[in-house]
Amino acid sequence: MTDSVLYSVFLLASLGIVAAVVLYVVSKKFYVYENPLIADVDEILPGANCAGCGSPGCKSFAERLVNTEDISDLFCPVGGNDIMKEVAAILGKEVVERDPTVAVLRCQGSCEVRPKTTEYQGPRTCAISAMVYSGETDCQYGCLGDGDCVKVCKFDAMYMDEATGLPVIITDNCTSCGACVEECPRDIIEMRPRNKRDLKVFVGCLNEDKGGIAKKSCSVACIGCSKCEDICPKDAVVMVNNLAYIDPVLCTLCRKCVDVCPTHSIIETNFPPKKVKKEVEKKVEVKVAVVKEQIVAESKKSKTDA
């Protein structure tokens, strides 16, 4: 009886010793030298592994930061300037400061303003339905509404609005990692500069069709009338292919263009309500306000949450 106990103890103990020796040898033999700086840098990085920097994860970005001489064109959008400065301090290299940005959705084609003309049956992902055809509406530039961007967002900064069928960006959560920009097959999401009160003026449309056709497929489409281009005092509006684009660098947020746009496709966010409000203007506001209100409401909500 005691024999068998002894045997088992002995057997297990020797097994343990053998395993320990093997492990030790293997770990010595396959040891890879790693620059300790990499671990330090990795520590500072946000650890979101969002690939917004272009590297597959924070660890590999840290390696890149340590191993490249000139890191001025490397940037972690999630960490922003503060983190990059810290990294630069550790590595003794120069970083270039960048303006913070935030994602905006350049499409207002909700179910209401952009009627569905066909019905899609198949896997509900934007990537696949974009391969099959131009989408359920007659606009082949706008949002497909299958929410690939929402699926890739790692920061809960996007959700699909059931009522409009469009994604909504929660500005406060957006880290500008760029995953959604990358994912969207229609390139609807754009990174625009973020300022203190998150004021933005941009064209919420990408439709390059001629005015009449664009208007028919979506009532808030940019029809390429150039009115905004004419009124802009800073020449910030450019017209390419029947489509207006507001250059965020030149734009001073004067909002003159917003009022002249006949289809209300220019979106302004987070501006205080205008003082004088005539009846006509109210109507104008309402449509634009759909998108606007959501953004405001959302940012408020997330603020109170936080």
Binding site: G122, P123, A127, I128, M131, V132
Partner: peptide, 12 residues
């Protein structure tokens, strides 16, 4: 199952 839909996508 939408087999070919996904296969075509994978191919692309």
């Amino acid at each position: 199952r939408p087999l070919l839909d996904y296969i075509r996508f994978g191919k692309s």
